[in-house]
Simulated scan of single mutants.
Amino acid sequence: MGAPDPGTIADELQYVVGALVRRRRALSTSDDVTPSQVSILKRLDREGPHTVADLARLDKITHQSVTVSAARLVDRGLVRREPDAADGRRKLLVITAAGQSLLAVRRDAGHELLTEAIAARFSPAERRRISASLTLLRRLID
Rank of each mutant, 00 (worst) to 15 (best):
L20K: 04
V21R: 06
V21A: 08
R23N: 07
R23W: 05
R23M: 03
R25P: 00
A26E: 14
A26N: 09
L27W: 04
T29N: 13
S30E: 15
D31S: 07
D32A: 14
V33F: 01
T34G: 01
Q37L: 06
Q37C: 04
V38A: 02
S39W: 07
I40G: 01
L41A: 01
L41V: 07
L41S: 02
L41N: 03
K42C: 11
R43N: 10
D45T: 08
R46L: 14
E47Y: 09
E47V: 09
G48T: 07
P49T: 06
P49K: 08
H50M: 11
T51K: 00
V52R: 09
A53K: 09
D54A: 02
L55F: 03
A56R: 03
R57I: 01
L58R: 13
L58Q: 13
L58K: 11
H63G: 09
Q64D: 14
Q64I: 13
Q64M: 11
S65V: 08
V66K: 02
T67M: 07
T67H: 10
V68E: 11
S69V: 00
S69C: 08
A71P: 02
A71E: 14
R72I: 00
L73S: 04
V74S: 02
V74C: 03
D75M: 03
R76N: 10
R76D: 10
R76M: 07
G77Q: 07
G77D: 05
G77S: 06
R81Q: 13
R81T: 10
R81A: 04
E82V: 12
E82K: 10
E82L: 08
P83S: 05
P83A: 04
P83W: 01
D84Q: 06
D84L: 06
A85T: 13
A86E: 15
A86H: 11
D87A: 10
R90Q: 12
R90E: 10
K91L: 12
K91R: 14
K91Y: 10
L92A: 00
L92R: 08
V94H: 05
I95C: 00
T96D: 00
T96L: 00
T96G: 00
A97P: 03
A97I: 10
A98H: 09
G99D: 03
Q100D: 12
Q100E: 15
S101L: 12
L102R: 14
L102Q: 04
L103W: 03
V105R: 15
D108E: 15
D108Y: 06
A109T: 14
A109R: 14
G110K: 01
H111E: 15
E112W: 10
L113R: 15
L114G: 11
L114Q: 12
T115K: 10
E116S: 09
I118Q: 07
A119C: 03
A120K: 05
A120H: 04
R121K: 07
R121P: 00
R121V: 05
F122K: 01
A125H: 09
A125P: 04
E126M: 09
R127Y: 08
R127M: 12
R127S: 06
R127L: 12
S131H: 15
